[in-house]
Design a protein around this nucleic acid. Structure first.
Length: 755
RNA sequence: GGGCAUUUAGCUCAGUGGUAGAGCGUUCCGUUCACAUCGGAAAGGUCACAGGUUCGAUCCCUGUAAUGCCCACCA
């Protein structure tokens, strides 16, 4: 077939992709001769929306490695899939429903989840289409979703397994609670935002010795100078739940006061002054108010000193009756105002300073988090972290570049137990079954309220009232006749993502392709995801899921901003593909991806890719014309005669022929070396340099003066080899040219051409 | 507060212990049949700053500054 006109990606890409798919080339079961496995798992994109440049970079790197190895005879497979992304997807769907004025509570759990499934179908498919447009040669027959039935089986099995090991426990602990998402979050799901707040210095009157034993005088204290201790706080409203004032035991200023009591303003409750090592002498006044139910550190101090926990804020971010009648039902911010006002009236505010500090916010809704006590499920991490560290330190799993290894080890070395339960609807429900009679509540459809939670806690912590089981128990083991209710909680979405390298795979695939060859991902989920996959793999497959983790760059905007949809700074890879073609887009991405250095996105690189595609097309057009009517007019003949035959028979006499062939050999070994080191940008620059400046500018120009058979042979050979080298980077145009040079187009394919 | 990284041409980035590179952009020239999505040529850099090691430093070391990211319960 003749190569003519200009290269048009739109006329080519979809057709070629379909041919590959129909040919079954992405499925390793069809790679008959292949022996050694090469497997990569796509980090499953969230079904929250469409893919962005970060995904495009990840997919392009992966596809290059996949195609590279497939062409080298590996039994190559790229496992694709998507993630249900619990909170994130639930929030997106809720936001969408809100436009119609519907809340998830209006629909109820079952109906709402149906809506989320609809969303998943739509966006899951968009994501897959995007990947296909980019040319991703993933095996779609092995497509998974983290909520597929067989995947869900694995999730339950994992929960059971940990439970049987005694690593799962339930407890009322202080957690970071998102009042918007109505759920707890793990440490890793917390982000921080700098806020211009205030630091209030509040006077707590010291209770005179004589009054301690005379409760009749409670609340009738007077304020005298030096009769109080001043505490500094950014959250005056939590004063209502204070259980103590703490100072450092080494603090000379307060030594005499330790053991005495203060009268908590507004509440008129006597609370002790205690000494705790964790208090920083240098900050504020050195004296801290302790609110065990609503602050992480205070909770810890409270445990040590066995302080009572006053729960003054509920899951909705409103004050409870424990805060006092006049505060009940107020929002936190309103309560703060009121508390401050009352303190001012009582003359108990010494001063107020402006104070810049970080507040914890939800990584999905950006709502300020409320630390509060909540009944949650936890996974003990000590043992798992230990094994993961061992694996990393022994080099069985290497993180590249190496400096990211510290990100993982630092987290594992200071690990805390993982709060795995979430109070949302979209996700894997815990395989936990409650006896309805004993809890006295049905928890499946009831909005979580403080009252329900309290009830649950009281009943369940005292008497064991749940069983952990894959299937719903037929008979309740406790009361013998109730219909057991499954826990309303779902698992943290990362609990299921952690099983990605094996969950939902067939036994045969696990046997053939576990562990995978490399994990390619972004640095922001090293702890959230990568570390957790490693210990899941060690726990359930007795081996690390991947020997290497490649951390690639992050794509930023030209100004160095993070690309984000909400800011409108994101770029949709499909727009680039429509404008320049998939090959040019891939080229532009990899051209800039020189290492792990973050990329400030520059579209001119994609334009460069389009020009390069045009150049390649024209090189092929010229060579095809030059070779017409010669012995070497097609692939097959080039293969049959072979450049090596020429070399062997010493028929290759021209210096320029020898030079270009030598340069080709150098290029091949350079590309091999760079690929092994994951330096794909370097590799692409070298290929570009060779094709454009060596082949086109020099050899091809020189060839115009020649008509001998050798120059035709060399031209044909150089082109064919260039196509092979370039195919992983620019798969569509290379396949298209290859087909046009073929004797029998459609019967031999560059994608599986052996190198 | 701790840690990690970055700083090279107008822009985006490579690179090396010894005369500094690419793509894009800019200027000039070029319509011979692969390609004007092209070809030829040119301009453009105290390699962030200050010290040090060295015969020699853009590169190695120390410090400073700016920027970015990660981690952290300082109220």
């Amino acid at each position: 077939m003749t190569i003519d006109g200009a290269y048009d990606p739109k006329q080519t890409e979809d057709r070629i992709y379909k041919a590959w798919e129909d040919g079954g080339f992405f499925n390793p079961d069809n790679l008959k001769k292949a022996k050694k496995p090469y497997a990569v798992h796509l980090p499953p994109p969230n079904v929250t929306g469409s893919l962005h440049m970060g995904h495009a970079l990840n997919a392009t790197i992966t596809d290059i490695l996949i195609r590279y190895h497939r062409m080298r005879g590996y039994k190559t497979v790229w496992f694709p899939g998507t993630d249900h992304a619990g909170i994130a997807t639930q929030n997106v769907v809720e936001k969408n429903l809100k436009k119609e004025g519907i809340s998830r509570w209006d629909l109820g759990r079952e109906k709402f989840i149906e809506k989320v499934w609809e969303w998943k179908e739509k966006y899951g498919n968009i994501i897959i289409e995007q990947l296909k447009k980019l040319g991703a040669s993933a095996d779609w027959s092995r497509l998974r979703f983290t909520m597929d039935d067989n995947y869900a089986e694995w999730v339950k099995k994992a929960f059971m397994h940990y439970h049987e090991k005694g690593w799962i426990y339930r407890g009322k602990r202080i957690v970071s609670w998102c009042t918007a998402c109505q759920t707890s979050l793990s440490d890793l799901e917390i982000e921080y935002k700098e806020e211009n707040g205030k630091l209030w210095y509040i006077k707590y009157p010291i209770v005179k010795e004589a009054r301690i034993n005379s409760p009749s005088q409670r609340g009738t204290y007077e304020v005298h100078e030096k009769d109080y201790i001043v505490v500094a706080t950014t959250r005056p409203e939590t004063l209502l739940g204070d259980a103590a004032v703490a100072v450092n035991p080494k603090d000379d200023r307060y030594k005499k006061l330790v053991g005495k009591k203060v009268m908590l303003p507004i509440q008129n409750r006597e609370i002790p002054i205690i000494a705790d090592e964790k208090i920083d002498l240098a900050f504020g006044t050195g004296a801290v108010k302790v609110t065990p139910a609503h602050d992480m550190l205070d909770s810890e101090i409270g445990e040590r000193h066995q302080l009572p926990k006053y729960e003054i804020i509920n899951e909705r971010g409103k004050m409870t009756d424990v805060a006092g009648a006049e505060f009940t039902g107020l929002k936190v911010a309103e309560a703060r105002e009121k508390v401050v006002k009352k303190l001012e009236e009582a003359g108990l505010i010494e001063k107020v300073e402006d104070y810049k500090h970080n507040v914890a916010i939800c990584y999905r809704s950006a709502t300020v988090l409320e630390p509060l006590l909540s009944n949650q499920w936890f996974l003990k991490m000590a043992e798992l972290a230990k094994e993961t560290l061992k694996t990393m330190k022994s080099g069985k799993t290497k993180i590249l570049p190496e400096n990211f290894e510290r990100t993982a080890t630092a987290w594992l070395e200071n690990i805390r137990d993982w709060c795995i339960s979430r109070q949302i609807w979209w996700g894997h429900q815990l395989p936990v079954w409650f006896c309805e009679k004993q809890t006295g509540i049905s928890n499946s459809q009831v909005p979580i309220s403080n009252e329900n939670l309290k009830l649950k806690i009281e009943n369940s912590s005292a008497t064991k009232d749940f069983v952990v089981a894959i299937e719903k128990p037929i008979k309740c083991p406790f009361c013998k006749n109730c219909i057991m209710e499954q826990s309303a909680d779902v698992l943290d979405t990362w609990f299921s993502s952690a099983l990605w390298p094996f969950a939902g795979l067939s036994d045969k695939d696990i046997k053939d392709f576990y562990p995978s060859s490399v994990l390619i991902t972004a640095r922001d989920i090293i702890n959230l995801w990568v570390s957790r996959m490693i210990y899941s793999g060690l726990e359930f497959q007795k081996a690390t899921p991947f020997p290497e983790v490649l951390i690639h760059a992050t794509i930023l905007t030209k100004d160095g901003q993070r690309m984000s949809k909400s800011k409108g700074t994101g770029i949709d890879p499909v727009e680039l593909i429509d404008k320049y073609g998939a090959d040019a887009t891939r080229f532009g991405i990899i051209w800039q991806a020189m290492g792990t250095q973050d990329i400030r996105w520059d579209e001119t690189a994609v334009q460069g890719g389009k020009k390069f595609a045009n150049k390649l097309w024209n090189i092929a057009k010229f060579i095809q014309g030059k070779l017409a009517n010669s012995e070497f007019s097609t692939n097959k003949r080039i293969n049959e005669f072979g450049i090596r035959k020429l070399e062997k028979d010493s028929l290759l006499v021209d210096q320029e022929d020898k030079e270009i062939l030598a340069k080709l050999e150098t290029l091949k070994s350079e590309v091999e070396k760079d690929t092994k080191n994951y330096e794909l940008g370097q590799s692409l620059h070298k290929i570009y340099e060779f094709v454009w400046h060596e082949v086109a500018d020099k050899y091809l120009e020189a060839s115009k003066k020649r008509e001998d058979e050798n120059v035709k042979m060399v031209l044909g050979y150089i082109l064919q080899e260039s196509l092979k080298i370039l195919h992983p980077y620019m798969p569509f145009i290379t396949e298209e040219i290859y087909q046009k040079l073929s004797d029998r187009p459609g019967e031999s394919w560059l994608i599986v051409e052996q190198v």
